[in-house]
């Protein structure tokens, strides 16, 4: 059976997307990286699992990611797109160019850190003045 749109033309075949699926449990996220039909539910059976991502650092302060680059390459050639978080991750892995969002987040974090540092310095100075 072929489905038809209201205009009488066939629907384009649903596109594939490489994205995260949240596994793990409450307060302990863990992600599978899968290729799935776009518009399908996150927890629907995926076409293929392509890797894992653990967002919580381990005892050596490392976040671990595994990626099956061969299959990722294959799905990209098949016209699959990657969701933004996956694009950022692949950017950090050196597989894609670094995603602009990564630079933005980094810049914002640095900004926040400098502001926080300035504020704490000001607080210290204030305390010193009050004491003297």
């Amino acid at each position: 059976m072929r489905s038809f749109s209201k205009a009488g033309l066939p629907f384009p075949p649903p596109s594939k997307v490489i994205r995260f699926v949240r596994e793990g449990c409450t307060n302990r996220p863990f992600y599978h990286i899968v290729v799935a039909e776009a518009r399908s539910d996150q927890h629907d059976p995926a076409i293929e699992q392509l890797g894992t991502h653990d967002p919580i650092p381990n005892e050596y302060n490392e976040k671990l990611t595994s990626l099956n680059f061969e299959r990722i390459r294959y799905w990209l050639t098949q016209g699959a797109s990657a969701s933004r978080p996956v694009q950022e991750l692949l950017g950090l892995a050196g597989f894609f160019p670094i995603h602009p969002r990564s630079y933005m987040t980094a810049w914002r974090n640095r900004q926040k850190a400098t502001e926080a540092a300035a504020e704490s310095a000001a607080n210290v100075a204030k305390d010193a003045n009050v004491k003297s």
């Binding site: 890797g51 650092p57 050596y60 302060n61 490392e62 976040k63 671990l64 990611t65 595994s66 990626l67 099956n68 680059f69 061969e70 299959r71 950090l92 892995a93 050196g94």
Partner: peptide, 10 residues
């Protein structure tokens, strides 16, 4: 704030 480790599991 932590290192990111990427492993190729091909």
């Amino acid at each position: 704030e932590s290192k990111m480790v990427f492993t190729d599991i091909t």
